[in-house]
Design a protein around this nucleic acid. Structure first.
Lengths: 195, 195
DNA sequence: GCTCTTTGTGCAACTAGTTGCACAATGACT
DNA sequence: AGTCATTGTGCAACTAGTTGCACAAAGAGC
């Protein structure tokens, strides 16, 4: 459960209102932990209730009015605690693979193939965006410890998107070599290797 | 929402009971779509209610008794429909990156670093397991369309685990070069690049 | 001055997934 | 025969995340 901690991190980097946070999640933090504005507002409420953050004093605190939050010491402590506590990696889930395996067993491959192509171009776009950011924000100048950690994260994104595009390309190649009816099994009772 | 479709796929490959499904999810399908037995039983109930599967007739259908399911034509159709319908890739979420970024801002890196090491060895183990499976199940003999699609999926797993191990190794290297107090910013008000 | 759009904030209901427990049948051990 | 562990099945409560809507304020266009 990382959303509250992602928010604390963002607020430590810079105190912000709900909308500002939403924007920052869209173009930065959301690359590895996405969240909608609804989630963010709800979480801000909880964090405030827990005493981890507080609203910065403002002239007219009314509804529909910008409200900025800053992290309190308790919030910083909680973040430090959470950050250094061990956590298991979540088992990755990807519907695309389910669909691939399903298409092998029902024997229709054209639908997935189209989507494979679409995903490929999405991943290519994302990769390009990351590389753009890398060029822009991580030139030779910036190498404080903080820069280097952020660069490391960006690198993970780039590497991951790279394998995705490569794998999708190779999958499409493989599809090109498949017989028209796809992978429908001829003898359904055959013992499958469970891989 | 892929669990029902993952189950349909598995049942088409071979009719099974809840427990058999659970086992197959553990060592095969679960590599890309994990599920607990509770989820599986619940979903089997729903699928039966929807007329997509049915319990194979058995002598003594009592509680605590093995009950196998098979896919009905309607289930196969639904699976084919779902498989070929376009679906957007889910934005990937990874708490590790949140923690990394958080550690940069709170300035404590030792905890994460230990966990990075632990994750590295977990990914290495997973990678080894996949490669074992590849050697065992996808030798030169097996190359029906279905084999090739399953191999493709396994390849994705291998490729992904490979980048993970590489990235984690490079991250640890980077950590080795960091100053002791980590990435705590010296001037918190500096404009951060939002990458 | 009045509608219209944009910006900022938020609630409520729903869906998916996880955790924790419970209970029946079976065979083994004593 | 009696308890005990194991196997197989399942419910219920909870947590996290998504979707859909609503409402207030402010400025823009007429």
């Amino acid at each position: 459960m990382s959303l509250p901690h992602a928010i604390l991190t963002a607020l430590l980097e810079r105190p912000s209102s709900g909308l500002e946070l939403t924007r920052r999640f869209d173009r930065s933090i959301g690359y590895f932990w996405s969240a909608t504005h609804q989630q963010i507002y709800r979480e801000l409420g909880k964090l405030e209730g827990a005493g981890y953050i507080r609203a910065l004093p403002t002239e007219r605190p009314a509804r529909g009015q910008k409200k900025s939050y800053e992290v309190l010491p308790a919030g910083r402590e909680e973040l430090a605690r959470w950050t250094s506590a061990p956590q298991d990696p979540k088992p990755w889930r990807d519907a695309l693979f389910v669909r691939l395996r399903a298409s092998a067993v029902v024997g229709t491959t054209t639908g997935v193939e189209d989507d494979l192509r679409r995903h490929l171009s999405l991943h290519q776009r994302q990769l390009a965006e990351y590389e753009e950011i890398e060029k822009r924000d991580f030139g030779p100048g910036r190498d404080t410890a903080q820069d280097r950690l952020q660069h490391l994260i960006l690198r993970a994104g780039i590497d991951l998107e790279t394998v995705w595009t490569q794998w999708l390309a190779s999958a499409l190649e493989e599809f090109g070599r498949l017989p028209e009816d796809g992978g429908r099994e001829e003898e359904p009772e055959r013992e499958q290797p469970e891989s």
